[in-house]
Amino acid sequence: MYRINVGGKVFSCGENMDLLKAAKSQHVKIPYGCANGGCGMCKVKIKEGEYKIGLCSKGVLTDEERQNGYVLACKTYPLSHLVAELIEF
């Protein structure tokens, strides 16, 4: 299990669970709409750590954003401890 810090709120997440599901299961609120990679509401910026990203819409997460550390919490799986910040809409 890895320690995930999103906007100062800390929860645990394993490699086989996405960040959004792990946060919800531990009562940590990350905004979301569809929870399926299509709406972009759960977008966060990873500041520290390693992760992998599942399939999600390029309309809500561009290649440039991906290169700059932005991810969708519903499609991101930790490979280490992570520090991230919430994105304000």
Rank of each mutant, 00 (worst) to 15 (best):
M1G: 05
M1I: 02
Y2G: 01
I4G: 03
N5M: 06
N5T: 13
V6P: 01
G8W: 10
V10M: 04
F11G: 07
S12F: 10
S12M: 07
S12N: 08
C13R: 00
N16G: 00
N16S: 14
M17A: 11
K21Q: 13
A23F: 05
A23Q: 02
A23K: 04
K24L: 15
S25K: 10
Q26I: 01
H27Q: 14
H27R: 13
V28F: 11
K29M: 12
I30S: 09
I30G: 04
Y32L: 08
Y32R: 06
G33R: 12
C34K: 02
C34I: 11
C34V: 08
G37T: 11
G38T: 11
C39A: 10
C39W: 05
C39D: 08
K43L: 10
V44E: 05
V44L: 15
K45R: 14
I46N: 02
K47Y: 00
G49T: 05
Y51A: 01
G54N: 10
G54T: 02
L55A: 09
S57P: 05
V60Y: 13
V60S: 14
T62E: 04
E64P: 01
E65C: 06
G69V: 10
Y70S: 02
V71L: 13
L72G: 02
A73N: 09
A73Q: 08
C74S: 10
T76N: 03
Y77F: 15
P78C: 08
L79C: 04
I87P: 00
E88I: 06
E88G: 00
F89C: 01
F89L: 07
